[in-house]
Every structure is written in C-alpha cells, then in structure tokens.
C-alpha cells in the first residue's frame, strides 16, 4: 500500500496511490496511516480518488485509522469512487466521516 503525504499548513493530506484497500492490504494500510498521523495536525484528509475498490476489511481499516486520530480530529475522506462510495453508503459509515467530493479548495495540488 503506497501512501503519499504532504503537509499543508495545519492539514495533512494523504493520497492513496494503490487502486484498492482490501483484505490483502488492510493491515499495511493501517500501519502506514498510523505512522503518518502520529504527526500532530488540526486536520487529516485522505484522498481516495485512486481507490477503485474497498472491501469490508478495508472499511474496517479506515475506521480504525479514524479512531487512532483520537477525539479531537475526524478523518476526512475525499474523492470516493462509485463502488467505494457504495460500500460507505450501504454500511451507513458515510455518516461517520467528513466526506468531500473532491479535495477541499486550496489542497488540489497536494500529494
């Protein structure tokens, strides 16, 4: 699981470079994300626009990263592709995350 991160002021923007977060890569995703978010920041945005598919293990991994952020930061997700969006919607986990259609203004060229 390749992740690229960039700091933009008080925001860490992380771009997932692989095309899926699945059972074969969920643990590695979780570990890499935890390393990146160990650095303090006000916001963490995960750009998922490269991720075409996410299974229940991948969803569990994204939830666990959100928990690792602690009570003061919420994981923000951006660029959900249709099948990924469907998994979040069906499981109602779309209500738990801040979801942006595309990277928020000012972060477009990050990553």
């Amino acid at each position: 699981m390749k992740l690229e991160s960039e700091r933009r002021g008080e925001i860490i923007v992380i771009r997932a470079m692989d095309d899926r977060i699945d059972a074969a890569g969920a643990i590695q995703f979780k570990e890499r994300m935890r390393e990146i978010i160990a650095e303090p920041s006000q916001r963490v945005v995960l750009d998922m626009s490269n991720i075409g598919f996410l299974d229940s293990s991948g969803l569990g991994a994204v939830v666990s990263v959100m928990k690792a952020l602690g009570p003061l930061r919420r994981l923000e997700l951006s660029g959900l592709t249709p099948t990924v969006e469907k998994v979040f919607r069906l499981t109602r986990m779309d209500s738990v995350f801040i979801i942006h259609k595309t990277l928020p203004e000012g972060l477009r060229n990050a990553g």
Binding site: V63, T91, V96
Partner: peptide, 21 residues
Amino acid sequence: KLADVSDLPEGGFGWFLIRTL
C-alpha cells in the same frame, strides 16, 4: 445485523453487504 455506526465498528460489514446485495 449491523453494529451501531456511532460505536465505530471495525468489522461485521461483510455479511451485511452480502445480504443487502
């Protein structure tokens, strides 16, 4: 049965998705 989303479950999604679809 899907856990309450506010409890931030990390699993239990698989059979829910299968049965839903």
